[in-house]
Nucleic acid binder design. Structure first.
Length: 218
DNA sequence: GTCCAGGGTTCGT
DNA sequence: ACGAACCATGGA
């Protein structure tokens, strides 16, 4: 199966996902940090806390006490390390001049700048670049790696950058790469959450080969 | 109620 | 290059 075909099947099975679930680019960035190694439902509660206390704002987060911030972030797990990372990110974001200034960078420079921030790794950087700045980078996460491996499209031990290059190359001629990459990642997450859970066999074998949603029926 | 899986990044070694 | 540390939540 080719990537384009996988996309079509996922899209047909699950429909438009309208990601990222956030009210502003800055909320996307906060969510990208908080969702590191944790499920989205946990992140929503932490973001709701920030909203309730009028702290979903780079300056407010930058100036909050570590203790206060960690308390609000508690539902998203790893609250001490995330308070530190989020605060570090917000101080950097302000120092850079905020969204407008960063948006003047080209995609490669923007991605590189984000990766230099302590607490921002490749997936978090790409979440931000794609979903907050609408640039064409393909986000690789554990679900993506697992699905591509099960489908036999990749070996599985590739580096993050190798997988990203593989996905971007495989979709190099699409008309609207930002829109396709946006939807593709969302669909992979949807498939992992819904289809695999629904079918108990999914976690223990390459069920995608037999998955009615995206693959050949048995 | 108890146990356990899942999910990124950094920092040691 | 590899393992350890960081944590609440939801399902079994």
């Amino acid at each position: 199966m080719r990537l384009r075909q996988l996309y079509d099947r996922l899209h047909k099975a699950y429909g438009p996902q309208h990601w990222w679930p956030a009210d502003s680019p800055f909320e996307v960035m906060v969510g990208a940090v908080l969702t590191q190694n944790t499920s989205w439902s946990n992140v929503e509660k932490a973001i709701a806390n920030l909203k309730t206390h009028h702290h979903l704002d780079a300056e407010a987060i930058a100036n909050a006490s570590h203790q206060q911030l960690a308390h609000w972030l508690k539902p998203s797990g790893y609250f001490n390390i995330k308070a530190k990372r989020l605060q570090n990110f917000c101080r950097w974001y302000q120092a850079q001049g905020g969204y407008a200034a960063l948006n003047r960078l080209d995609t490669v420079a923007l991605r590189k700048a984000l990766l230099d921030v302590n607490g921002i790794g490749p997936e978090t950087a790409d979440d931000i670049v794609l979903y907050a700045f609408h640039r064409p980078v393909f986000v690789i996460d554990a679900y993506t790696r697992r699905l591509l491996t099960r489908l036999g499209l990749v070996e599985g031990e590739e580096s993050y950058e190798e997988l990203r290059a593989f996905c971007e190359r495989g979709l190099v001629r699409v008309a609207e790469p930002v829109q396709i990459f946006n939807e593709f990642h969302a669909l992979i997450v949807m498939h992992a959450k819904v289809s695999c859970k629904k079918n108990p066999l999914c976690e223990s074998c390459a069920i995608e080969r037999h998955c009615p949603a995206i693959g050949v029926s048995a």
